[in-house]
């Protein structure tokens, strides 16, 4: 099975996010990017499938900046090929445009199964995987955890997660696109030494992004922190003082004795 995993860089949410002077976009000057964590799950599921059932894993990324190390890390984890799609993506790219580019690039890459992260922190105009599937006219299932080959390799069984722990088991004909929520195992870790070694011994492939057209979209007019009328009262002080305040607050409401 040829598995393709498009991965995407997103702002590291642990860092402070600043809005730029226009008030419409992120200030990218100090932005720290990292791979979308759900893409790490997609890659892990792909690598587990390959280990168990054979096949190849190809990783794709649009060059939105800082992708080289991410792609080398994917190789270090066990991907067979890593392809960087170059173009004007440094200021970010809409999901519709990313999907259109990926669809074109996939024209020359064998793919039975495309695994993407279920969503990304910045896909304001929708999830790339689903849009990609629509463009390629492939079946798609999102919020998947657990993929197994079925029907003699012509399909896969995917578990789609609903609320409350209920899951649906769906059989999906290949080729297909699945939005991975969680891999069966926690994503593996590639030690820095291994990544360094891969950087020396392996090469990233490069493809120039084809020109694409996308239909109607939307334009951000304002980007801001949520106005927080109901924001928490922050308890200040040493841990000792804070703990005392909390005991008092909890005691007042009957959750503790004073």
């Amino acid at each position: 099975m040829n598995i393709v995993v498009p991965v995407k860089m997103v702002p590291d949410l642990v860092e402070e996010l600043e809005v730029d002077a226009t008030g419409r976009a992120l200030d990218r000057s100090f932005l720290k990017l990292r791979i979308n964590e759900f893409d790490e799950h997609a890659l892990e599921e792909a690598l587990l499938l390959k280990a168990k059932h054979g096949g190849t894993v190809t990783v794709l990324a649009l060059d939105t900046g800082e992708v080289d190390e991410t792609l080398f890390t994917c190789l270090a984890k066990g991907a067979d090929r890593a392809i960087k799609i170059t173009g004007q993506f440094q200021d970010g790219v809409s999901s519709h445009a990313a999907a259109a580019v990926l669809a074109r690039v996939l024209g020359s890459i064998p793919h039975d199964l495309i695994l993407t992260g279920v969503q990304a922190a910045d896909d304001r105009d929708g999830q790339v995987g689903i849009l990609l599937a629509s463009t390629l006219d492939l079946p798609h299932v999102s919020v998947v955890s657990g993929v197994e080959p079925a029907a003699a390799g012509k399909a896969v069984t995917a578990r789609q997660e609903y609320a409350g722990g209920i899951m649906a088991e769906l059989e999906v004909d290949l080729p297909a696109v699945l939005g991975i929520q969680a891999a069966r195992e926690a994503p593996r870790y590639a030690p820095v030494s291994k990544v360094r070694q891969v950087m020396k011994t392996q090469k990233l492939e490069e493809v120039a992004a084809p020109a694409v057209e996308v239909g109607a979209g939307s334009t951000v007019s304002r980007l801001a922190k949520p106005e927080t009328g109901g924001r928490a009262e922050i308890l200040e002080g040493s841990p000792e003082e804070v703990a005392d305040r909390l005991v008092a607050i909890l005691a007042e409401r009957g959750f503790a004795k004073r």
């Binding site: 949410l13 809005v19 980007l223």
Partner: peptide, 9 residues
């Protein structure tokens, strides 16, 4: 962004 920002579009 994980609930950190709101975008009006």
């Amino acid at each position: 962004y994980g609930g950190k920002l709101l975008a009006d579009a």
